[in-house]
């Protein structure tokens, strides 16, 4: 913790968890989708479902999906701007179960190029967030680091190939997690790095054997 964690951040009120955290979750969902949002259905769970109007959580999520920062004064008007940009955003309350964090949200998104993605995350306090599920894969990462997410066949060497490409590009791995549903089936991997991953590395990784898809998640 440094002094700017105490004096700051500058943000749009009223709540670091229900407003600033919601913007960040929207930012992350947008980054994971990897292209502009055309249509999003947003499900609100728990305390988010109960208090979203009073905290402007809905406006904050929509602002986040448009790529705005947590201190952007336009946040209270984010619906108008979404409309102008012809982004269709709708909300519903959902129940993700008792085990889910009370400030959880799920995005069902379609991008401007037709890509689809479902992202679930939670705002865990003080504006910090965690993504817990992408396209039905349980994951866990914060967006504090640049990251890549791969969907790949669970085969020997699949992971090593990815990390070796990163290392040749001088990218240091900060944290790495692999998730799979069954042995030899489809697996997901999150690699959080200290340096941003450039276009070249990103493209090469996408063409590796066993890699089905790769997403780059980079928040500014």
């Amino acid at each position: 913790m440094n002094i700017f964690d105490v004096i700051g951040p500058v943000m749009i009120g009223p709540s670091s968890s229900h407003t600033a955290g919601a913007v960040r979750l929207g930012n992350l969902a947008l980054a994971i989708l990897g292209e502009g949002v055309k249509e999003a259905m947003i499900g609100l769970h728990g305390s988010f479902a109960q208090t979203y109007r009073g905290h402007g959580t809905d406006l904050a999520l929509s602002a986040g999906l448009q790529g705005w920062a947590t201190d952007d004064s336009r946040i209270p008007k984010s619906f108008d701007s979404a409309k102008e940009a012809e982004i269709e955003i709708s909300f519903k309350t959902i129940n993700l179960g008792d085990l889910s964090h009370p400030n959880s949200v799920r995005f069902w998104m379609t991008g401007v190029n037709g890509n689809k993605c479902t992202v679930t995350g939670a705002s865990i306090g003080g504006g910090r967030v965690v993504v817990t599920n992408i396209d039905d894969f349980p994951v866990e990462f914060s967006g504090d680091f640049p990251a890549i997410l791969t969907m790949h066949r669970d085969r020997p060497g699949a992971i090593a190939l990815v990390t070796s490409i990163l290392s040749t590009q001088g990218v240091n791995v900060a944290q790495m997690k692999v998730f799979r549903k069954q042995k030899g089936g489809l697996a997901a991997m999150i690699v959080e790095t200290d340096q941003p991953i450039d276009d070249a590395a990103f493209e090469v990784i996408g063409k590796l054997p066993h890699i089905q898809s790769v997403r780059r998640i980079q928040l500014v």
Binding site: I7, G8, G13, T19
Partner: peptide, 18 residues
């Protein structure tokens, strides 16, 4: 009141106590 109406504030130390 600015905070409660989605105004821009410095969370110092938090939004509620800004």
């Amino acid at each position: 009141e600015a905070n409660a109406s989605m105004g821009r504030i410095v969370a110092a130390p938090t939004a509620g106590a800004s």
